[in-house]
Design a binder for these strands. Structure first.
Length: 306
RNA sequence: GGCGUUGUAGCCAAGUGGUAAGGCACGAGUCUGCAAAACUCUGAUUCGGCGGUUCGAAUCCGCCCAACGCCU
């Protein structure tokens, strides 16, 4: 039985994913499934570089612009939403094109990781945070080591998030993280993923990022953030977004405008570097040159997918 | 021209006679329920230059160079 083809286009921020994916969609009658942890949020348009109606050129986009900035959203949600979208597109007889820069999200698809339904015990998390603050993180580290020594081999004593996670998984499911990860990997991957990644000269990418940040400021990023802060009270994830947290600091008077802009640029450059690290891991990835003509890259893709 | 201050990695910077802290950036990497997050690794045979004192100098002395400040 032939598995349905799913095209994946990833790449660092500002590498030209949007333009390429839309041209490709037009060419092969595809629809787009976003894989971007910040573009899922409503209202966060400028700062997340969400494609505009005009850029989309009528190509349907899924898993985009549909979560309130005050809501919690995670890979587990993403995996489910993305698969739903892929199925919808396939039912129409069209080709799904997964496009985005969030490595974790993309891997949840191409590695077919299964997230079981568990509810996060907020109380317990708070309790752990408390212990970490009062008695020190080492205590929790030791505790986690007793529960799951295997997983802790790869987790640093300073890595609070992952230490807490090991404890949480055990608390919520009675299983160790190691155990849970084994179970999460299904044997079969349902789709024939064709993974492409865009790259370009580092210096060029960085100058494109700098330019893009300036443009975002011109387009009204500050006002966008001001409105979101006004409209919503808490942001479990949304205010972690690059650009948003820096503008927030500017609005609070912690940074000057110049400092804010510089910081956004620098953090974005570092983010792009980390994205590249992530994409390099997948051996199946076919690399595209970001400075090439869109048509040429489309031809490469068409050839690869046969 | 004179006096003074400073000169340590790409940047900021500790170190005042005993064999170069630290932070940031850059680069590399990790990643399974906050991921645009969080975390890990990585740099000076050398302290503006030359010479001197000393067992030993980034640290003391002399000269030179550069920057800044003040004076004429």
């Amino acid at each position: 039985m032939n598995k349905p083809k799913v095209i994946v286009i990833c790449g660092p921020t500002a590498s030209g994913k949007t333009a390429l994916s839309i041209e490709l969609a037009k060419k092969i009658d595809g629809e787009i499934v976003s894989a971007d942890s910040m573009q899922i949020y409503k209202k966060m348009d400028i700062g997340s570089a969400k494609p505009t109606e005009e850029e989309m050129q009528g190509i349907k986009h899924y898993v985009l612009d549909f979560v309130e900035p005050s809501q919690r959203y995670s890979v587990a949600n993403y995996k489910k939403d993305a698969i739903d979208a892929i199925e919808k597109i396939l039912k129409k007889g069209k080709t799904p094109i997964v496009v985005g820069g969030t490595g974790l999200y993309i891997n949840s698809l191409i590695d077919e990781i299964e997230y079981t339904d568990i509810n996060i015990d907020e109380e317990y998390r708070k309790k752990l945070e408390d212990i970490a603050n009062k008695e020190g993180l080492e205590k929790l580290y030791e505790e986690a080591k007793k529960i799951d020594p295997e997983a802790m081999k790869k987790i640093s004593v300073n890595d609070k998030k992952r230490i807490l996670r090991v404890l949480e998984i055990y608390h919520d499911t009675g299983k160790t993280k190691t155990q849970q990860e084994i179970e999460s990997r299904k044997k079969e991957i349902f789709y024939d993923y064709k993974v492409f990644a865009i790259n370009m000269d580092r210096q060029l990418l960085y100058s494109r990022i700098n330019l893009r940040v300036d443009k975002m400021i011109e387009q009204g990023l500050i006002e966008e953030v001001r409105q979101i802060l006004e409209e919503y009270k808490s942001f479990p994830t949304a205010m972690q977004a690059l650009g948003y947290k820096e503008v927030k600091e500017y609005l609070e008077g912690i940074l000057t405008k110049e400092e804010m802009i510089e910081k956004i640029k620098q953090e974005t450059r570092r983010y792009a570097k980390r994205q590249l690290t992530w994409f390099r891991r997948n051996k199946q990835t076919i690399w595209l040159e970001g400075t090439a003509k869109i048509q040429d890259n489309i031809n490469i893709i068409l050839e690869e997918i046969g």
